[in-house]
Design a protein around this nucleic acid. Structure first.
Length: 564
RNA sequence: GCGCCUGUGGCUCAGCUGGAUAGAGCAUCAGAUUGCGGAUCUGAGGGUCGCACGUUCAAAUCGUGCCAGGCGCACCA
């Protein structure tokens, strides 16, 4: 609704400016884009236009004179504008009538869980691919951030009318998997009393030892190495790597499940190889002239599309590279009919962006149809001291440990709070504090307080009268208009989050909304049996605040406690 | 050396499709409850927006160059 008003207002400003320019008999080649902003400062109205400042140069007139003229020519029959004023260097500030504002409340109440949703996605098919951790070890904190960001971007885009598929890409082939199998094999032999030198680049985490025990429990000593066998043969490596990979993947799925992150699809790299898609994708690129041979290897001409160097897709040993599989994978995504692809990667993969974007273009898809979101690092703090995260020594903190320690709600919220571009400092002590330092509780507390008002309402046998009988003009307090204005911003905010793929604005919004509510709650009472009209209006106001908090937290996957 | 991200009050961060007096939380200080939940509220102090040029009526925001931190630069995955 706020968006509609905004559009309407822009048009009226454009009309007024047009009439003025006509009167001046000037040839204006470009009418600047009408840029309506919502001023940060309440004293600057509900909408502000900088049109006069923009026109000032072309018209060779002082901005304030232009502003006055635009106001003069502004549609005199427009009823929903309460006041127009010129301010500062030449801004025109528009104030809306409160009565119009209060139409927001019935809208929230009627739309319920749909309030804030939109159809800007026009049902376009979007794939969000995220986490995609190698099944070589447990998920760590960094994966957690990517998981929540991906999950919530998907939620928000769905809410904005996109048709979203969530996918996890499993790298279940290649050297790393073999190394994983070897590591498990060695641990297994150790259980059987054999001493074998552990490779430097092997997986040293204790979880491998646990898996070896599981393996032993199932197969006993059937795979004990032969007397002359120093390292296992190919078949045994495969058996161990499959067992270990499956085991770890199962754990990854469990952790994500606990964290409330669900996928529609688990896509294996192996399937690309087995179905011949890796080969055929390279063939397609070859036909398009983007593949050449040099030094016995096959190269993809990614430099054509701005990459720093060309990339090998088939090695001298005639093996396809990881990148080759990624070529096939992205082609496959488009073949499945997705209009937009979103890949969410850890910051350490940024060097990979150009070559994958090159693939997109090489197959003839628009550059922008793939958005790669980089998630910067998470540093874990405990009492102001960084927690060691060295993966080499397997000291890293797993996602599971974090969730166990601070809970899913707090973890999710903390991961979402910051812009993806910023490093994120995750303070474990802060996360555990049940106080105002912790923004999650602050928001949930607002929700619980409203719930409590309605519990009390029932205790006092007060009934809500039908919406049609409510007179919202009873809402005269400053807090009340402020709350309603905040509620009105919700749909626009979500559109912005969906379009920019930036979920962190939502955390900020909910903190602000909760803040206004807490101030209101402290100062004004809702349950006023002596003033029925006012009470009923307030009940509906508070009910819509509750609804918006609910919609927001639900998008973030954070729970809604009726009591705390 | 090249590339990506970041640099905003003591701390953690918003703001970055240029707009008015740069915001929020924490911390600090001073206050608030005979009332629907004090996990709350009100107020105060605290800032050369890393530095320097440039573009503009207007720069935290755009451009260029430096400085600092993080992360990458495989015929590994």
């Amino acid at each position: 609704m706020r968006e509609k008003i905004k559009e309407e207002l822009s048009r009226k400003i454009r009309d007024a400016a047009g009439k003025y320019i006509l009167e001046l008999k000037l040839d204006l080649t470009v009418m600047p884009h009408i840029n309506l902003e919502s001023p940060k400062d309440k004293a600057h109205g509900d909408f502000a236009s900088n049109i006069a400042l923009q026109l000032s140069k072309q018209l060779k007139l002082a901005p304030r004179i232009i502003a006055e003229a635009i106001i003069k020519y502004f549609d005199p029959d427009c009823s929903w504008i309460k006041k127009k004023e010129i301010a500062g260097p030449g801004f025109i500030n528009f104030y809306l009538h409160d009565s119009w504002l209060f139409e927001i409340i019935p809208e929230v109440i009627k739309q319920k869980k749909k309030y804030g949703s939109s159809d800007i996605g026009k049902n376009q098919k979007v794939m969000v691919e995220f986490v995609s951790a190698n099944p070589t070890g447990p998920l760590h904190v960094g994966h957690g951030r990517g998981a929540v960001v991906g999950d919530v971007i998907a939620n928000i885009m769905e809410f904005a009318g996109f048709s979203v598929t969530r996918e996890f890409y499993i790298n279940d082939t290649g050297n790393q998997m073999e190394l994983l199998g070897l590591s498990a094999w060695i641990r297994y032999q150790e259980l059987l009393g054999e001493e074998i030198k552990f490779p430097d680049n092997g997986y040293k985490g204790d979880y491998i030892k646990d898996i070896a025990k599981q393996f032993f429990a199932k197969y006993k000593d059937n795979y004990k190495r032969g007397a002359k066998e120093e390292y296992p043969g190919k078949t045994n490596i495969k058996i161990f790597s499959k067992f270990t990979g499956n085991y770890i993947l199962k754990n990854i799925k469990e952790d994500l499940n606990i964290f409330g992150v669900k996928f529609d699809n688990w896509f294996t790299e192996k399937s690309l190889h087995e179905s011949g898609q890796v080969k055929s994708a390279i063939e397609e690129l070859r036909q398009k002239g983007y593949i050449y041979e040099q030094d016995g290897a096959q190269w993809f001409k990614s430099t054509v599309f701005g990459d720093d160097k060309d990339r090998v897709v088939i090695t001298k040993e005639n093996k396809t590279t990881y990148f080759a599989a990624d070529i096939a994978y992205h082609r496959n995504k488009y073949e499945r009919g997705f209009d937009k692809l979103i890949d969410i990667w850890g910051a350490d993969h940024h060097g990979y962006i150009k070559r994958v974007k090159a693939v997109v273009e090489a197959f003839g898809h628009p550059y922008d149809s793939l958005d790669i979101i980089m998630i910067q690092l998470v540093s874990l703090m405990r009492n102001g001291v960084p927690v060691s995260m060295s993966k080499r020594d397997a000291e890293f903190v797993t996602l599971k440990e974090i969730i166990d320690e601070v809970g899913s709600d707090v973890s999710r919220f903390f991961f979402l709070m910051r812009s993806c571009d910023s490093d994120l400092e995750f303070d474990l002590e802060l996360a555990k504090k049940e106080s105002m330092e912790n923004p999650v509780y602050y928001i949930q507390y607002a929700y619980a307080r409203i719930s409590s008002i309605f519990r009390e309402m029932e205790n006092q046998k007060i009934k809500l009268v039908p919406l049609s009988k409510i007179d919202f003009n009873e809402l005269k307090e400053e807090h009340e208009t402020e709350l309603v204005k905040k509620l009105a911003c919700f749909p626009g905010l979500l559109v912005q989050c969906a379009a920019a793929h930036e979920p962190h604005h939502l955390t900020k919004y909910l903190q602000e909304l909760a803040g206004i509510f807490h101030g209101y709650y402290k100062k004004h009472k809702v349950l006023l049996p002596d003033q029925k009209g006012k009470m009923q209006a307030r009940l509906y106001l508070v009910k819509s605040v509750k609804q918006v908090i609910e919609n927001g937290l639900e998008l973030m996957g954070v729970s809604l406690p009726e009591k705390m």
